[in-house]
Amino acid sequence: MTSHGKRRAALIGALSAAAIVIAIMALSGIGDNLVYSWSPSELLAARQKAVGATVRLGGQVEVGSLERVQPGEPLRFRVTDGKESVAILANAVPPAMFREGIGVVIEGTLRKDGHFETQRLMVKHNNEYQAPEEGEMVNAKELERTLEGEV
């Protein structure tokens, strides 16, 4: 076989390999087995099994649940999926976007007393980017005030 023919055979082989990889990823539902996070309902349903294991909990910061805490203390709030909610003890400095109602993913463990303890608090952002309305402006100072109150 000429090198010309070999190259074209390699081309067909490589293209097929790439197409097969994409088809497998798209159609096999491989991602359905990759559980990125549990919802509060899923976590509470598996309660006994989940205690002590490191899991990811995803949901919204329940409106009205964010407590004011002393400097140095963990953040306290609840994460909800609209049906169930879990009390969180977060030993992490939140990003500036953190607020009630926002989506979060929390990696930690469920304690026997029902509190979910974490050192890794992640805030989710959706794909919307809007200009602030009149008088509305986010910043880190503002968040610190909400969390700890006027010092």
């Binding site: 500036a96 976007m97 607020r99 926002i102 952002h125 980017y129 809007q130 200009a131 602030p132 309305e133 509305e136 402006m137 986010v138 910043n139």
Partner: peptide, 14 residues
């Protein structure tokens, strides 16, 4: 450009 209403100035990385 304005900052993003929830994210603030850091959105400018976009």
């Amino acid at each position: 450009a304005p900052p993003e209403r929830h994210m603030g100035d850091v959105q400018r990385i976009m």
